[in-house]
Computed example of a mutant assay.
Amino acid sequence: MDLALLRTFLTVHRAGSFTRAAALLGLSQPAVTGQIRTLERQLGRPLFLRQARGVTPTTIGDELAHRAAPHLDALIEIAGSGLTGESGTTGTLHLAGPPEFTSLRALPALTPLTTQGLALRASFFDNAEQTLESLAAGHHDLAIATARPHRGPLTATPLCDEEHVLIAAPRWAARLGHSVLRDGHLVLEQLPVVEVHESLPLVSRYWAAVFDSKPAAAGAVIVPDLRAVLECAAAGAGLAVLPRYLCQGALERGEVVALLDPPVPPLRTYFLVARTGTLALPPVAQAYEWLLRAAVDW
């Protein structure tokens, strides 16, 4: 079996599209389609179901990808290393994830690997679905997402849980007094809200978990960066719901205060995701393990 055909097959399997696979391989779409048809004729079985938007692997296609991917990826890694036999991590790792978590947690944790020859490239996505689609398409080696992938050639491991905290500037907390404990679901009617989106995703999730209700107010400040949300809240713009890791320093310095201390704080799970088979590649495998070890302290 031609290894070039297998490489094209795996790229299509991971990308979910002949068009995206062609772009990744530097080939024309007809060339990719022709190679897949050739492989299907050799095997005597269809490997993909053609759909309006991309392709879906058949059972035979999934089985072939599962069996071939680790070996083909290992051969590509050997060819790329030039059989030097040198130890350590070399190459470039492309990482995708949420901007704040990736900036404050993942990248600092991976930085020591750069002294061993690993180059890091990061891309930020606010949406978990976009993150996973980009990873599946082959644009990145690893991804950190707030949702577990339910389909496609992806392998996910829970990385850590993120605790969410309801915060505001001290003057707002003093104004509320004990009313927040008695009538917590009414807080939004008294305080303006700082959020990352008009739909108030963090506040809505907090309200559902703690108060079993929906927030009743619109955002006073909407800014698509949690670090900016923290700065605005500390300046007195209103209440906000933030990950504890991001606002812990401001809490300790008294720049903001926690308005509530619920018995079971709302949590959000981060997942470390890779394409199936790529964990056989040394740079990906080492970064994967490095992040899992670092996350024990997160």
Results as ranks from 00 to 15, higher is better:
133 E>K: 12
142 L>D: 01
149 P>C: 06
163 E>Y: 03
147 A>K: 11
151 R>E: 15
164 H>Q: 03
150 H>D: 15
128 A>Q: 00
128 A>Y: 00
144 I>Q: 01
131 T>F: 03
138 G>V: 08
148 R>S: 13
140 H>M: 07
160 C>N: 03
150 H>R: 15
144 I>W: 02
141 D>L: 08
155 T>Q: 07
143 A>Y: 01
127 N>K: 07
158 P>Q: 06
157 T>R: 13
152 G>V: 11
160 C>W: 02
130 Q>P: 02
140 H>D: 10
154 L>M: 12
154 L>I: 12
133 E>Q: 15
154 L>Q: 13
133 E>P: 06
148 R>I: 10
132 L>V: 05
158 P>V: 00
155 T>W: 06
134 S>C: 13
145 A>H: 03
138 G>F: 05
149 P>T: 08
139 H>Y: 08
147 A>T: 14
143 A>N: 01
156 A>D: 08
151 R>S: 15
162 E>C: 04
162 E>N: 08
137 A>P: 02
165 V>R: 13
145 A>P: 01
133 E>W: 11
141 D>K: 06
134 S>D: 13
147 A>M: 09
140 H>K: 06
138 G>D: 09
133 E>A: 15
127 N>Y: 07
134 S>A: 15
164 H>R: 02
136 A>S: 15
140 H>N: 13
157 T>K: 10
150 H>P: 03
164 H>A: 01
139 H>W: 11
138 G>R: 05
159 L>W: 03
146 T>Y: 05
159 L>Y: 01
132 L>H: 05
165 V>Y: 05
138 G>C: 06
152 G>S: 07
146 T>S: 09
153 P>H: 08
131 T>H: 08
141 D>M: 07
141 D>S: 09
157 T>E: 09
148 R>L: 11
157 T>D: 04
128 A>P: 04
153 P>W: 09
153 P>T: 10
133 E>C: 14
145 A>N: 04
148 R>A: 14
158 P>K: 01
138 G>H: 08
140 H>E: 07
165 V>C: 09
131 T>S: 13
154 L>S: 11
150 H>V: 13
136 A>I: 14
134 S>M: 14
138 G>T: 08
160 C>D: 02
156 A>M: 03
139 H>T: 05
132 L>K: 04
140 H>S: 13
155 T>D: 09
139 H>P: 00
127 N>A: 11
129 E>A: 15
154 L>A: 11
155 T>G: 00
142 L>F: 10
127 N>G: 04
